[in-house]
Amino acid sequence: MSSVAIDLAAVNKSYRGKVVVNGVTFTVAAGECFGLLGPNGAGKSTIVRMILGMVPPDAGKITVLGKQVPAHARLARAGVGVVPQFDNLENEFTVRENLLVFGRYFSMSAREIEAVIPSLLEFARLGSKADARVAELSGGMKRRLVLARALINDPQLLVMDEPTTGLDPHARHLIWERLRSLLARGKTILLTTHFMEEAERLCDRLCVLEEGRKIAEGEPHTLINEQIGCDVMEIYGGNPHESIELIRPYAQRIEQSGETIFCYAPDLDQVRKQLRGRAGLRLLERPANLEDVFLRLTGREIEI
C-alpha cells in the first residue's frame, strides 16, 4: 500500500476561457485528513470532480490510490467513498434499500451487502431507522446516511465535498465526531469546506485556495502561527478610522473588513486601554484562527 493517497501535479482547468483551477499541486498522504479550504468559486468542487475522474483536467497529472485519473478513474473509484455536496439519496427508498442499491453499484453481492449494513447503520447512528424512508429523515440523518453509503465498499479514501454545509451545530458536531473515528481507523479523508472551524478541528493539513490558485498549504496551527502569531481583537461599532488611529502604535497589523476592524497585537491589553471609554464600541478578544490567515493572505474575509 502506497503512502500517497492523492497526488495532484500542476493541474489546470478552464471553462469557456475562465480559469477555475490554476496550477494546483498537492499531495495527500495515506491516513491523513487533508482540507481544501476557500470561498465558493475558489475551485474546490472542480478539484474534487477531477480527482473522481468526472472532469478531465486541461493540463497536469492526477494520481488517486496509485491509479492515473481520469484514464483509470473507474479503478480508482472502486477504493473511494464519496460524500457529495448535495444529497443524492433515493428519497422513495428506505435507509436499508439505499445501502443495498449502492452496494450493487460496486458489484457487491446481496450477502456481502447484508453483512456490512448493520455496522454501517450503527456507525451512522441510524440503527432504529433502517426501514424508514429517506424522505422521513432529518437533514443530519440524511447526511449520516450519505456517509454510511460512502463507506459501503470499505474505501481507503473518503472524498467529501462540503460535508456539513446546511447542518445545525449539533448535527455538524456528530458528523465531525464520526469523521474522527474514521481517521482513527486509518482512513484517508479529503474534504472541502468553507468553514474555518471545520478545517481547524479535523484537518491534519490543508491547502487554502483562492480563485483557483493555492495560496497556502500546511498544518492549521503552523499556518496560524506563521501568518498571524498573536491574538486578535475584533472591534465593532464607533468610527473605524478614529479607532484605527488610536490603536495603530500598539498593533502588529490591522485589517478592516466592512465595519469590522481586526487588530493583531502581541499585547491586546494595551489596545484595550486605548479604546477604553469610547462610546458604542464592542470588543472581542480571541486566539487567531484560519479565518485570520485567509484575511491576511487575500485581504478579505471568506464569503459564503
Binding site: 473522481l52 457529495p84 443524492n88 433515493e90 428519497n91 449502492f102 453499484y105 460496486f106 460512502a150 465498499n153
Partner: peptide, 14 residues
Amino acid sequence: TQRTWEAMLCTQLT
C-alpha cells in the same frame, strides 16, 4: 433533478 446518476458516477460504474 433526482441526481441519481450523480450518485452512480461516484461508484465504479461508468
